[in-house]
Amino acid sequence: MNRFEYIRPVTVSEAVAAGAAPGSTYLAAGTNLLDLMKGGVTRPVQLVDITRLPGLDRIEHLEDGGVRIGALVRNADLAHDPAFARRFPSIAEALLSGASAQLRNAATAGGNLLQRTRCAYFYDTASACNKRHPGAGCDAIGGDNRLHAILGWSEHCIATHPSDFCVPMTALDAVVEIEGPQGRRAIPLEQFHRLPGDNPERETVLDRGELITAIRLPPEAAAFAPHARYLKVRERTSYAFAVVSAAAALRFEGDVIAEARIALGSVALTPWRPRSAEATLAGARPDAAAFRHAADAALADARPSGDNAFKIELARRIVVRALTLAAAGTPARMPALPASPFAGVMTHA
């Protein structure tokens, strides 16, 4: 068989030391990594199983009003934590729109940030992919790329980041807590993933051996709770990655938007935070014209990377709808079809 070392450290420092070894990869739930290994897409020399590390599976509501999500908190546990879902409803909605119930029961918060693109040419080891083999070329360009990137892509890679969770997290200024051989640091999630540029094989700013220990939301993030939604358009009603998704969060002062947060998913190799679009809404009234103006700003730099021009207009419309839904207010109960355009649709028995 494909032999690799497997170790299961019991402290973070042991894990980091092991993770710094060449060819080492951290293993949490493995919902993505194990598939990649079975397909020969990645062949780590050593797996450092972090699932037994103490203290990383906690949701801590901090005294300052923020929350720290341990890297090993399961998606389902986070989404169903009542206090978390109440204060950060768009994140719970995003989590519940992802994957399947079985996967949500296993997949972790930290792992979610590090999931790889779903680009078929990345998974297909017979295809050229600059992520797998820097300099090999990109077979997605000129291939089947109907769902590929419309923002931030380069001629070396047109893949997208598939996460739902990261989209509202980015919008709400989440911060990634990292522990590595050089100590601890914290960086904004918005800066955690890298656009492809000339080095699509470098997907995050993590240095060798660095381990995500937690993701923190600042106290201000909870202020958006009354007006925060996640919307995900996909090609079947459930268990599909987004064609395009958007998180929208609004904070009102009277009838006027004091602050808007927007992030887009599945449009780029990172969760996409169009700050210029957010800025257009500061002080605006929540009407269709303002939302369309913001959507235009959000997609101003978009360009197709192949047969995917439709995603640009689709993304604009999703931004408008997500803002509209957010302005209407967070629903009292989680919809039966979280994040779906059909969330509010009754079906006949």
Partner: peptide, 14 residues
């Protein structure tokens, strides 16, 4: 079927 007028997402409802 129900179809989202903006997104074109289709769902068979009956």
């Amino acid at each position: 079927v129900k179809v989202d007028p903006d997104f074109g997402q289709v769902r068979v409802t009956r």
